[in-house]
Design a protein around this nucleic acid. Structure first.
Lengths: 139, 139
DNA sequence: GTACGTGCAAAGATTTTGCATCGAT
DNA sequence: ATCGATGCAAAATCTTTGCACGTAC
């Protein structure tokens, strides 16, 4: 399923701003804030970035990731593999990880509470392996 | 450990605004937005609410919960038991749940990735048991 | 008395909205 | 030609900051 097809299924058009937001997200190794996205989308009005993200969220093209008190955005399945993050509060890096055990747990909790899960959020914040070894952090 | 003691340990004072924000959070069954909190804290300036939440976050008196694209706040341990939420996208209710299996998983992932976890976020969004049975939702 | 905190007000940033125009089909 | 989408500008919100005054200790 391409983004073009997905949009057309909903009578929406693949316009230049939408293409640019999508490309910016695809090329980023880490989740981005709205400001990050707006800055990287030259010649695209900020309002269009907002409107595009709402549209993309509704079509599940993007997903929101909360880290600390801020929201970040990244492509969702099937555009990138499902994953979660190890966010280092020292170096700020967000390392993606696969967590099949978590996906199982979500299924279990869904059955246990008779709750129809639409999506789940899971993020870890802490100190990454590298930063644990830096002088700066040991002080 | 009372909030008063916790503040004093850091040379901070238990003032009226701080007491009010704490009480509002304690009395709420669900996580609140900053606006919710500000509205419920009569006679407290909005700026003080912001400053109080920053302070409370640093002392781990509150924790932030991301639901959808918004941030909510609630008391953290040890002021209320550690828990996560089932957030119903239909009726908007956030039901707290205990998830010992998740806590174990966090420990496992921490060891596996040699990542020193400081905090973890986990939320489920979907349709609650009640709403699955309403006519409105079945349409 | 001495900081720390507050309220107030202003500034700064973010997000939403209306509308005329543009562009994809 | 039609209808959705955009850019622009204005409005509405949200968040931060400086400073004089209050108040907890």
């Amino acid at each position: 399923m391409t983004i073009d097809e997905l949009l057309k299924q909903h009578n929406l058009r693949l316009t230049k701003p939408r293409q640019q937001v999508f490309d910016v997200l695809r090329q980023s190794a880490v989740p981005l804030t709205i400001s990050d996205i707006a800055k990287k989308c030259k010649n695209v009005d900020r309002a269009s970035v907002y409107r595009t993200l709402v549209t993309f969220d509704q079509l599940h093209i993007v997903s929101a990731v909360a880290i600390g008190w801020k929201s970040y955005y990244e492509l969702a399945e099937p555009f990138i593999p499902h994953h979660h993050h190890l966010y280092c509060i020292h170096c700020q890096n967000a390392e993606p990880i696969q967590t099949p055990e978590l996906e199982q747990l979500v299924g279990y909790l869904s059955r246990k509470h008779q709750f129809a899960v639409v999506k789940h959020h899971f993020e870890l914040e802490g100190i990454c392996k590298n930063c644990q070894q830096t002088k700066q952090y040991k002080k």
